[in-house]
């Protein structure tokens, strides 16, 4: 379920973010409680709570006292924006780095992208 790559609470936050981006979790929808989350993934509830805390600090989730955690309005667009910002750094730059390492000319990549765009237009 969780890998060892990063802290579990970070992974929990990332999963919830993914769900919001993909639309599996709608804005103003209630999120599973810390305890439900902990029971489901067999993790310490304090760890789950830390993940949720991370998301409230970022304004992705908010707390309704006595009811639970909800997805904030505008959370999806905030997340999309953040991902777009990181897109070139995290995806494109790394791709270019890898291409150089294994000797794929940038021209080939551009050609490949052109082809995809044409296919997409059809």
């Amino acid at each position: 379920m969780f890998d060892e790559r990063s802290p579990i609470y970070q992974q929990i936050a990332d999963q919830i973010k993914d769900d919001i981006v993909s639309g599996a979790l709608k804005e103003e929808e209630q999120v599973m409680s810390t305890n439900q989350y902990a029971a489901f993934y067999r993790i310490n509830p304090a760890t789950a709570a830390k993940g949720f805390q991370l998301l409230t600090e970022e304004g992705i989730l908010y707390k309704k006292r006595g009811i639970g955690m909800f997805v904030s309005t505008g959370a999806r667009s905030t997340l999309l924006e953040a991902r777009r910002d990181r897109f070139f750094e995290e995806v494109v730059d790394r791709m270019v780095e890898e291409a150089r390492r294994i000797g794929v000319p940038l021209a080939d990549i551009l050609k490949h992208l052109e082809k995809q765009r044409e296919e997409g237009n059809q």
Binding site: N35, A38, A39, R42, N44, P45
Partner: peptide
């Protein structure tokens, strides 16, 4: 056991 423990702990 892990499940029971966690549930009862909560």
């Amino acid at each position: 056991f892990y499940e029971e423990l966690l549930r009862d702990y909560m």
